[in-house]
Simulated scan of single mutants.
Amino acid sequence: MMLTRETLWLVVGFIGQIAFTGRFVLQWLYSEYKKRSVIPTSFWYLSIVGSTLLFAYAIYRQDPVFIVGQAFGSIVYLRNLQLIAKSKTVKE
């Protein structure tokens, strides 16, 4: 079976959405495990994966609202990872 270009982009979009939604499930389960609200580092990595895939999908779909929304999020997710890395360096 051969995938069409449209089917391939639908797969990219759905994988991005699954990763993006998965980050909330991860955060919820991790917080339940810790018995307090916690955002694990993997939340930010899933955010980047989901956001990047959804950004690519939005460009393919030529949806300016979706493009702008996803482009900004990646900046925030990358910055949070930088802050996490910096705080680990300071503690050492």
Rank of each mutant, 00 (worst) to 15 (best):
T89L: 13
Y77M: 13
Q70N: 15
T52A: 12
G13W: 04
S47Q: 07
F43I: 12
L26N: 12
D63V: 01
Y57C: 02
I18P: 01
G73S: 12
V76L: 15
Y77C: 10
A19L: 14
W9R: 01
R5V: 06
Q70E: 15
A58Y: 02
E92A: 14
Y30T: 09
E6P: 03
L53H: 09
A71C: 03
E6S: 11
S51Y: 13
W28M: 08
G69T: 01
Q17C: 03
P64H: 05
S42M: 12
G13P: 05
W44E: 08
Q82G: 00
I59R: 05
S37E: 12
M2H: 08
E6T: 11
I59T: 09
Q62F: 11
A19E: 06
K86D: 13
A19P: 07
S37G: 07
I18M: 06
V11W: 11
I39A: 04
K88T: 00
Y30Q: 02
W44D: 08
G22L: 03
A58V: 07
K34Q: 07
F14D: 10
I75H: 00
G13D: 03
E6Q: 12
F66N: 06
S87K: 11
I67R: 06
S47T: 11
Y33W: 14
W9S: 01
S87M: 06
T4Y: 05
V38Q: 12
L8E: 08
A56I: 15
I15M: 14
I39V: 15
E6C: 03
Q62R: 13
A85Q: 06
L54S: 03
F66K: 02
G22T: 00
G50P: 05
D63F: 01
M2I: 03
T89H: 11
Q17T: 12
K34G: 00
K91Y: 03
S47A: 12
S42F: 14
S37V: 13
Q70C: 08
T4K: 04
V65P: 01
A56G: 14
L54K: 01
M1I: 09
T41K: 00
Q27A: 08
T41E: 01
A85N: 07
Y30K: 06
A19Y: 06
V76Y: 11
I59H: 08
R36Y: 05
A19T: 10
A58G: 04
A56L: 15
P40N: 11
V76F: 15
F24G: 06
F55H: 09
I67Q: 09
T52C: 07
R23M: 11
K34F: 01
R23S: 03
Y60T: 04
T52P: 00
E32M: 13
V12N: 10
W9N: 02
L83V: 12
L10H: 12
L78Y: 10
V49R: 00
Y60L: 02
R36C: 07
I59Y: 11
Q62A: 15
T7P: 02
I48L: 15
F20K: 08
W28A: 03
K86G: 04
L29K: 09
E92F: 10
L54G: 03
L81S: 00
G13N: 05
Y60C: 02
R36H: 11
M1D: 08
A19V: 05
R5C: 00
V76S: 10
E92G: 15
S31M: 06
L3N: 04
G73Q: 09
V38K: 12
L26K: 02
W44N: 07
L81F: 02
V12L: 14
V49F: 11
F72G: 15
V49M: 07
L26W: 10
K91C: 02
Y45A: 06
N80R: 12
